[in-house]
Design a protein around this nucleic acid. Sequence first.
DNA 1: ATCGAGGTCTTGGTGTGCCATAATATTTGT
DNA 2: ACAAATATTATGGCACACCAAGACCTCGAT
Lengths: 238, 238
Amino acid sequence: MATREIARSPAVEDYCKAIFTLESRAEEPVATNRLAERLALTPGSVSAMLKRLDELGLIEHHPYRGVRLTREGRMVALEVIRHHRLLELFLSESLQMPWDRVHAEAEVLEHVISEELEQLIATKLGDPTIDPHGDPIPSAELELNELETLPVERLKEGDTGLFVRVSDADPEMLRYLSERGIAPGDRLHVRERQPFGGPLLVAFGEGEDRREHAIGGRLAAAMRVQLDSPEPRRRAPA
Amino acid sequence: MATREIARSPAVEDYCKAIFTLESRAEEPVATNRLAERLALTPGSVSAMLKRLDELGLIEHHPYRGVRLTREGRMVALEVIRHHRLLELFLSESLQMPWDRVHAEAEVLEHVISEELEQLIATKLGDPTIDPHGDPIPSAELELNELETLPVERLKEGDTGLFVRVSDADPEMLRYLSERGIAPGDRLHVRERQPFGGPLLVAFGEGEDRREHAIGGRLAAAMRVQLDSPEPRRRAPA
DNA sequence: ATCGAGGTCTTGGTGTGCCATAATATTTGT
DNA sequence: ACAAATATTATGGCACACCAAGACCTCGAT
């Protein structure tokens, strides 16, 4: 029952990666339609592929019930995610590629770099643990430690914390943030929360650099924060 | 009649690249079998693909007569070769990947890097003109200037010159050379030429570093030299 | 100069991976 | 219990490879 090395096409890897991230957002098995949506494919195509992945032993597919990764499938996903995030950091750090472009480039490269190149890049970067968007990088042994974070939209007035992470998927958003000098690692402080699902007024940075910005909409959902006072919080926004 | 950007799969690019290099070794159009051999495919597969490439306007295929690149096809080839050689240099220079491994890695990466990444790499390396094996790198405008070189096997006793280039295709060979401290850029001097197609005794380097090696067989064909006295020479070996 | 023989090349039929669309099946909410 | 939402199967297409069969070319012997 050795790990099967066959049939690891870009498509297969993309499916595993997508299932992995959808799986870690919710406890239930992943639905075909969610997957189709995320991969920008038709449900029919996805259904067919799921059958194959099941036969390959990468997922467990219970028809009409959804899908879960096997241990093996999870390894594939983590491997690819490690590649992706190392590449993002590498492109941004070593080649000065702008923040908002590294994602698209890494999306392709992640499927083709050798283990040896992965290793060289990791070493060159000093075995980093987070990428430029604040996403944690799985270790060489494929251990991933996610930290507990909240999206900005769930913060309350007076909350302080560290802006740690932002989805890398939308270049527009990243450009918006970097134009305003906001980046993961910044301290933040919620000054005011407007009612009716409106934006939050948030101060970023400290001392001289301190600047206020209104954060709302999809942006407030994509930006994630590590709270100073880790007081537990329920699902629903205030 | 704008340059058609469609249908540039890795396979298509590999065909163009292979045709390009075969074409530049001989004046006649490239034969299907040569191509099949170089790409490690069956002639049948190649034949089918050549038909497609012709329809795409990348080659001119005269059935049973061989194949030539069009201007457009040549551009595709040069673009990929530029990628390949920049990547080789980058991997070797910026990431310390050993000389004999960069080729295989570049072989895959060359098809997937964006124009922007190409640009960043070129800039980082200072717009280099030769790669670590001494192969010239096409400019951003896809101009390639090959220098006149002779394989070591065609040198005569007493010849001196610069070892400028070695085929990147055989890692064994590259490892052999680097173990002995021989690399493109070394000066060389032919001490003795053994008869009956035997090896040549060649001194590399100068002063302290000077060392003699016997070079023969496929190695003597793969290593190329820029002669000090560019006295013209005929085809056949002495 | 003609006629094979043998190498070279192309064609045709297949298979695989991955996608699409359309028709069909299953589950779910009311 | 049935419409709506969700998922699956069936069928087809495209890219790209393989093998086997047949077409074409060349060259040497007559």
